[in-house]
Design a protein around this nucleic acid. Structure first.
Lengths: 226, 226
DNA sequence: CTCCTTGTACCGATCGGTCTGTACACCGTA
DNA sequence: TACGGTGTACAGACCGATCGGTACAAGGAG
């Protein structure tokens, strides 16, 4: 009773998720990601969450700190993992066009496996409080800077024309939109889609020399509702 | 009192918004659009809405039917107006590349003036009930079909290579992402951005003959938080 | 009077979060 | 072996506030 306020410092939800608590924390994060996608942050009740993970509400709060922190953890772990899978391809001696292909493939692979997390991170992060939100924004910016860098490297190497922020946003818009329609069981693999988009961005729709063989019909299912 | 249920059939919120009620209905839709952007559908209370339009809650419900219907009306009127501003450019005898420029400019102009509505329509529509949601999805699909058509016309006319749904989604992702960062007071007009993106899509980043003069630095402010 | 518009009071349900109690596994000590 | 002590993982009651929506009476205008 000496300390003025706040719970004990060593609760499972404060640790960096390393030990046996991992299973429960991860289960919560995964389950809640699903809930947030379909009902949104404000549309998902704590009651509902605790039901979904088979816990009482008190028990749930033993693990999580707050609802907001769940959202923060989901968003940050997603962005960190995206950063982690992209960085190795940027910090190499590969020529910029190879880098571009690699990070595009990495991004779409990431979208294919963590698509729900992406949608939560970009759509719900605005509900975070100031401090939390800034961290998410910074992480997202950091990720986008990687793309900007690679694109600029290619321009400086003379592989393509100079690019500015407008170009970069166009590129990212193109790739990030895939999170909305790409499905694991779709006819095209993430790598195939990545290659096609990189190709489209580099050479454009207008043919240069020889002609390509491509169907006129959609080869992907329509995007699902929502 | 003859009918078993439901309120009177001739409430202002049932009419197609044509008469004097228009001002109030429009004020509500505009105000709520703003609220939905920042706090989301579930994060915005009816109390808050009525406060924002200077009405009691009872008075508000005289105008609106339900909170859900506000969201539906916002989404549908947005999509309808987008459709209306695009269609005239599609149903012409212009060559496909001219059409593409035109609908791109129309879309970005629309984003510049109704950007908030777009974000609400795409982000919050998932909270609508089944029937409402389907209408929004259909309208969105209809809009995307216009782009698909124009892109295919250009391919058939031999202006560029054949396109499929993956290409179309890439294009739309690129353009729709502008709703997140384009600002009315930005250095580039919607038309300029549209032209640049169309150019990027048609010819790609790799230069063909002569070189273009373009800065390496961003010429747009960073996207705002959220 | 009637019609349109409004504010107020109220409904049951749910909100996010806290508090208390408890079952249980593991502990060193005797 | 038996002991009390400690920490973990949990459930359920409970908090004030707010949720979306309705009932209804009063106000104002014709």
């Amino acid at each position: 009773m000496s300390r003025p306020r706040s719970r004990d410092v060593s609760q499972p939800w404060m640790e960096p998720m390393t030990n046996a608590n991992r299973s429960m924390r991860e289960k919560i994060l995964e389950t809640v990601t699903e809930l947030f996608i379909h009902k949104g942050f404000h549309g998902t009740g704590v009651q509902e969450i605790s039901k979904a993970v088979n816990l009482g509400r008190g028990a749930l709060y033993y693990h999580i700190g707050s609802k907001e922190q769940i959202l923060f953890d989901i968003s940050m772990s997603l962005l960190r993992s995206a950063l982690d899978t992209t960085l190795p391809f940027v910090d190499t001696d590969d020529p910029p066009d190879v880098k571009l292909h690699n990070i595009a493939r990495a991004l779409l692979r990431h979208h294919a496996t963590h698509g729900e997390g992406w949608q939560v991170a970009v759509r719900e992060a605005r509900f975070l409080s100031e401090e939390y939100q800034q961290q998410v924004i910074d992480a997202r910016r950091e990720f986008e800077q990687l793309w900007h860098r690679v694109l600029q490297e290619g321009a400086r190497a003379g592989l393509w024309r100079a690019v500015d922020a407008v170009d970069v946003r166009g590129v990212l818009g193109m790739f990030n939109y895939t999170a909305r329609w790409m499905r694991a069981d779709g006819p095209l693999s993430p790598e195939q889609i990545a290659d096609r988009y990189v190709d489209l961005l580099l050479t454009g729709l207008i043919e240069r020399s020889e002609r390509s063989e491509r169907s006129d019909r959609p080869d992907q299912p329509e995007p699902p509702p929502e």
